[in-house]
Design a protein around this nucleic acid. Structure first.
Lengths: 338, 338
DNA sequence: CTGTTAGCGCTTTCAA
DNA sequence: TTGAAAGCGCTAACAG
């Protein structure tokens, strides 16, 4: 039933080596031989054993995709995009999830689970600790970071500083002066992580407008909806004069909207809210956002690892643009004509 | 650098066979030998080559997870749950995505990409065509369906008929008489698919209350937000007297709410809307829903395949309950005291 | 252009 | 309880 390579070789009247070459489109096979081998292989339903091929060649034709979650917007979309791109190029995708604990401590990702199992690694969206990253790189496989990464790593990401800058400039143009920032917990924030960079953009925009980005205007909580909800309340407790909130993700922004509702405040009449992402459900609450191209990032990262695997030297850093999508969760503050 | 099994054997002063047995916790290894082998292996950083192990044993310790999408609520959560469960048991997860085309025709999923690559298969959420499923089963691996599946297949799912029944009974209790149903496209709907069963529940609830579930009250569009949005408009064009909509998913329900807003209608004053899922963002619009335990389903399915792989005969069918979560998108129709 | 042959690094009988 | 040895099913030199 399960035809092996020598069944094909015998039936086609050639050697196993020729079958192997023919089926993998290697050179040095005559057109007619290749044709015959292909025909026989199809007829016999022959599919090469990946384990045997890996063992013999040292290549697995699989990519490890490491992500803290799969059920959150950014991660789900990146995984979706990368998986399709990789499969289109004939690569398997091994999915590795790990938990971020609320406590700040999370199980470290164990490099051994990837050892000899993949040809390359994609790390999605969450800054690994320096030593975790190094352990991973120590495996010796090409590695690409998606949505984060310093100058040392091959990276596909946004220009997060500019995103923060443009978002907050927009709020300032609307007339806001006291603009809060809601973002994720500090322990996950490296100097070159998206949250840190977006916060930098927020600070720069405030400063260039002569406003004070004081620490009390920033709140770091959970990255999810519930985090945004709690953070906005903490912010308002400290700064009742707040008229606008820039959240570092749409999920947190939507949480902020829920939190404002809890407090009996209206959006945007009392407080304007905007986020970053382009979440499809943002429209439910008219969420203004900095929309990012997420499928493309997954795709680009896939191309990047594959190029690295194939010995090319692709750009070490691909940066995608975000664009402002203006909806109804932002408006001029009361008493200011826009 | 990369220690092999005979490096360990040599260093421990035993044969490779013993190393293999010791490290895999097989019987017939003395406690002290096992201990020594373990110590040496750790010291040398030895990790067995999965390809070699698979080739020799015929088992891959990998499960293929087939899903139409990863970026939609149900699928993302199932994948997340199943991946964690499988990894906890030492299995790898190979992710396979395929596209549902709007046209109704989608690329068939090719069983050959899974051949000799996995020990078991999980098919998430979308009814495969009969012959696709058979082709997959023809590979000879244990296969479990999650969120769908007939009586022939091992299945983890909800009682979708009861969900539809209870949802619509609830709307009827509120006083609604003209209740529409928004669901997915008919070409993906098998007799035993969740959409079909939920529709059956809707029909039964209507009938038992002496109401007419006429075909014009049901609209099948896309499964996503945009589908719900379009469907509700079609529904209202045919039935301006509609006062409530039961959508087969929260995403379609949220789309329906957007569609109603487009028409200038208020929820729930003009039309009540409810869904199925328990989507975390449902709260944004106060969505009433039939909430389902989604992580648990992923976990249960993982346990199921693994049991099947290990020759046990687990229950062929695990059914999880959903529960009504009442929020503000549903209310008594105008003129009816609740 | 094609065939021969030696592994790849384990697991698994079979003996001891 | 342990070891020897024969593969698992391919790929990759190397010859021809």
């Amino acid at each position: 039933m399960a035809a092996g390579i020598d069944d094909v070789a015998r039936a086609a009247g050639v050697s196993t080596a020729t079958v192997s070459r023919a089926l993998r489109d290697l050179p040095n096979v005559s057109a007619k031989t290749r044709e015959r081998v292909r025909a026989v292989a199809t007829e016999l339903g022959y599919v090469a054993s990946p384990s045997a091929a890996s063992l013999a060649s040292g290549r697995t034709r699989a990519i490890g995709l490491i992500s803290p979650w799969v059920n959150r917007w950014f991660f789900a979309n990146i995984i979706d995009g990368a998986e399709r791109a990789l499969r289109a190029r004939g690569y398997d995708v091994l999915l590795y999830t790990f938990d971020i604990q609320r406590s700040g401590e999370r199980p470290r990702i164990d490099p051994d689970v990837l050892r000899r199992r993949v040809d390359g690694i994609l790390v999605v969206g969450l800054p690994l600790a320096r030593d975790e990253l190094e352990a991973l790189q120590g495996l010796g496989y090409p590695l690409v970071c998606i949505g984060w990464g310093g100058s040392e790593e091959a990276t596909v990401r946004l220009d997060d500083r500019v995103i923060g800058l443009e978002a907050v400039r927009y709020l300032i143009r609307l007339g806001h002066r006291v603009i809060g920032h809601v973002t994720g917990t500090p322990d996950d924030v490296h100097p070159w992580s998206p949250p840190a960079d977006r916060a930098t953009g927020w600070r720069e925009a405030m400063t260039e407008a002569g406003l004070e980005p004081d620490a009390g205007l920033m709140e770091s909580g959970g990255f999810e909806v519930s985090g945004g909800r709690a953070s906005v309340k903490a912010l308002l407790a400290r700064h009742p004069d707040l008229t606008a909130v820039f959240a570092a993700s749409d999920e947190m922004a939507m949480g902020a909207i829920l939190g404002l509702r809890d407090l009996g405040l209206r959006v945007p009449e009392d407080v304007s809210v905007m986020g970053v992402d382009g979440h499809e459900l943002g429209e439910l609450v008219g969420l203004t956002t900095m929309s990012q191209p997420v499928d493309e990032q997954g795709w680009a990262a896939a191309e990047l690892v594959l190029d690295m695997i194939n010995g090319k030297t692709p750009p070490r850093r691909v940066v995608f643009p975000a664009r402002l999508v203006e909806r109804t969760s932002t408006a001029a503050p009361r008493g200011v004509a826009s």
